[in-house]
Design a protein around this nucleic acid. Sequence first.
DNA 1: TTTT
DNA 2: TTTT
Lengths: 166, 166, 166, 166
Amino acid sequence: MARGINKAILVGNLGNDPETRYTQGGMAVTKISLATTSVRKDRDGNNQEKTEWHRVTFFGKLGEIAAEYLRKGSQVYVEGRITYSEHTGDDGQKRYYTDIVADEMQMLGGRGEGGGGGGGGSYERGPRQPRQEYGGGGGQSAPRQQPAPSRQPPPVDDFSDDDIPF
Amino acid sequence: MARGINKAILVGNLGNDPETRYTQGGMAVTKISLATTSVRKDRDGNNQEKTEWHRVTFFGKLGEIAAEYLRKGSQVYVEGRITYSEHTGDDGQKRYYTDIVADEMQMLGGRGEGGGGGGGGSYERGPRQPRQEYGGGGGQSAPRQQPAPSRQPPPVDDFSDDDIPF
Amino acid sequence: MARGINKAILVGNLGNDPETRYTQGGMAVTKISLATTSVRKDRDGNNQEKTEWHRVTFFGKLGEIAAEYLRKGSQVYVEGRITYSEHTGDDGQKRYYTDIVADEMQMLGGRGEGGGGGGGGSYERGPRQPRQEYGGGGGQSAPRQQPAPSRQPPPVDDFSDDDIPF
Amino acid sequence: MARGINKAILVGNLGNDPETRYTQGGMAVTKISLATTSVRKDRDGNNQEKTEWHRVTFFGKLGEIAAEYLRKGSQVYVEGRITYSEHTGDDGQKRYYTDIVADEMQMLGGRGEGGGGGGGGSYERGPRQPRQEYGGGGGQSAPRQQPAPSRQPPPVDDFSDDDIPF
DNA sequence: TTTT
DNA sequence: TTTT
């Protein structure tokens, strides 16, 4: 029985093209380096930037999709879990790695330099999440023509001045 | 003391330009209609699309930023909390509303039809989250030139064929 | 192809025992009412509480698990997507509903009044997410006693006084 | 301007009591080791468990609260951002660390071995998030007994047999 | 190594 | 009402 939630949610840009390898069994393993930059004002009122570079790994079908559609510079949404591992190098030194193992990805904006195509798309992993579709175009039904909800927005003038409602 | 977590995380596109009103105290209240579309294969192997339209509200400084930068078609990341309310209409009928009250937003891709400008930017709410900066350009320090981590990726060939590692 | 992310993350307590119905095909559909309470200080320094009541729906195997283990008062983690629907009542009036359709759930603390057992457990939906296991009742074993990573924490004395590092 | 989202959401148990240090300026820096365990069935149908140990850091007021209320074994919800750093050890070797810097925490279940009190509580960081309150010890009151919304649930019998609605 |  |  599982106990615990371990979830990472990232939106960032790829620092390089994805790298894909295959296991002996033929499963794609695609890795990307993903930058998330945040900014804040320091005490002197200057902007301070900090970028974190995440190692993100996509397995299986999701690895194939990442390899095909992502490129250096691509903006992407990734959801996954944080994993830690250690590997002993050739020099006998242990090295520690943190990887985000992706469960879901969504391409954003589509301004990567590389791949001609792409557009935006959302994918979940492998044969495991039949709810979302991946891959080529695929017959697409007519766009939802859902009627706008008749629910009119309530008035806003009843908020207090310096406080944001719950 | 607070008990509970109430968090919504959305990535979608605006169905219309934002609408902004001001409270008597001068606080901006900006509302958008945000579409999130998901797809899955049905039993016959056909793609089924479903779009949910979320009412998202931005208060205060975040409301001003949303008003300035978001446009119909804009792609945006929104984080907030789910709120339910009821209002009695002029006909005496009660109506129920669900609103996502945004704490944070991040513009994505920037391909909205409207506003010339925009670009991408991430914002948190009002004077309350000094960690993130909002607003116009602002002096930006030199781009991080952080050295790539020397940590080399571990080999991948040790994964089993039909299974994805934890 | 899916576009958009629609995710709700909730931690709260059940206001009542779950209600389960079955479709003609025999699929369990379990609904709960989940309270998330947040608190803030108002301008006068007094604590203001606000509770949101979420309608959460579990389908299929996850619905069976929710029915078996959750009880009024249970604390639970729920992840899902926000859905909106309308139904016309017997009086011809349209009514609007917002439901969180759960993808994953994790029982917490286990202090529900009802069910004897429970303990904590994390579950994903149906046959669709083989990564997580459900079932096997099981009291909650002691927290993992695994040794902390040998990676020693870096020193902390280099932080500035009034500011929190990135 | 910030670009990117970097968010970790964890629910797990502490492997040890928190450790707190103070900066020269008097700011609390509390670190915990947090286990998140997940389970899946392997190809042979056996349950495979995997535990990740996260280093989580709380700064400032949140650090004081974590120090006061969390204990070895406590179950906790943590939200924060993933940060990577490197430090050179006394042996001249570089070591890499991954830390989750918490923005928000919520105590769950309250079965830690240590501190008598606690109960559940949700906290955000320091003077920076006035929306949530911390402090006020307080045993955990009964789950809100507020009446469920009068909006009646729609019927469920219209779902198909083997498929879960969007 | 990315991005604006 | 959006988007690909």
